[in-house]
Design a protein around this nucleic acid. Structure first.
Lengths: 188, 188
DNA sequence: TTCATTATTTGACCTAAGTCAAATTTCGCG
DNA sequence: CGCGAAATTTGACTTAGGTCAAATAATGAA
């Protein structure tokens, strides 16, 4: 499934330069400091953020507790999917966990570009498909794996997460308490 | 979010008749008996099934236990998302829970049609977006809700599920044991 | 360096949910 | 209608993971 990212990359390479130029024209680079919020609860996610460097996360509040739903590293695309898709206020925050550099594209500019450059519709579709498969995998983890199995899964498949992100955040990402995560780690 | 389905429906209505005719041309109706499998583990999901009548489900095996991942009613589109998207063997089964009638569209025929009728690419995108938001909501339920809350959620938002589907299947859909579901129901 | 803050670990106890086993209840079918 | 299989409930017990509290450990700014 990871190789789907390669398929997307190779699709992008196959796109004519005119379309790519348009894509660049509607995108701009920006830097954020560690702790900055790119998106807040109740806002409409009007931009997509392609992470060029650094680490970020998406989370929401549940009973005042922060529940991390996604972690972003280089080349990951950060958006609050439902808020972005529906262009309605959502409950998610996007936060820089380190200083970051992102490439920002406005929703409306991208929609407009899609009407002129049909290849962008296919790109949009591929990105949505990739996200769908990714969320499906997350759901599978919650549906059938124990806390320990979920931790071992990211330890194996995404070790960069474990070394770069505080345990509090990893615990909420795994849907367990900080203490339980600590005990899982102690037990190997 | 449910209204996104309406948006999809209204998008379909806005599609020119030539495109719609093509869509009909590559689709065909078929009936299945209760218990029939439309897709098995390790097969490639080469078709999408639009449910015209009856009830179906998608599930996979985990330690020999059937884990239901989705329930389908009239007008729902049944596919094993990852297997369909990647055209690779997957682990999911699709099963008729009652006698059903479906409208079948072949993956490849739809891909071919998309190259001639660009509106179908947008339709495909909208369907993928809808599925992504739906899975995100399921993940949210598993991430932050208790078993009781999850049951009350479907009882409230999808009461048709509870009246039409055996508890064994609902329990696995909610990620809890049959006994726990029975106790939750007893406690109201 | 040092102190203060934040991150992580450990302990004691609690609770939601699981498991196994044995009733019941429900239902399709002859 | 009545029986056998399947569905659902109930009981007794176990366990994964949560909560609250306190103790360490790690970090970073002055």
């Amino acid at each position: 499934m990871t190789s789907y990212l390669e398929k997307i990359a190779s699709y992008i390479k196959s796109i004519d330069s005119e379309t790519l130029t348009e894509l660049q024209r509607i995108s701009s680079e920006k830097k954020y400091k560690k702790g900055d919020l790119l998106l807040r609860q109740n806002e409409i996610c009007e931009k997509s953020y392609l992470l060029l460097s650094g680490i970020a996360r998406k989370y929401y509040l549940n009973d005042g507790k922060e529940i991390t739903t996604e972690l972003y590293f280089e080349n990951d695309l950060a958006v609050s999917f439902e808020s972005y898709t529906l262009q309605q206020p959502g409950r998610e925050f996007i936060e820089a966990l380190t200083d970051i550099t992102v490439s920002i594209t406005h929703y409306q500019a991208f929609q407009d570009a899609k009407t002129k450059y049909p290849k962008l519709v296919t790109l949009d579709l591929m990105l949505a498909e990739y996200y769908g498969m990714w969320v499906e995998h997350r759901l599978f983890q919650f549906h059938t794996m124990t806390a320990t199995e979920r931790y071992l899964d990211i330890l194996t498949k995404s070790p960069h997460i474990v070394q770069a992100v505080p345990l509090t955040i990893i615990a909420s990402y795994l849907g367990i308490s900080l203490e339980t995560l600590s005990r899982i780690r102690a037990r190997i």
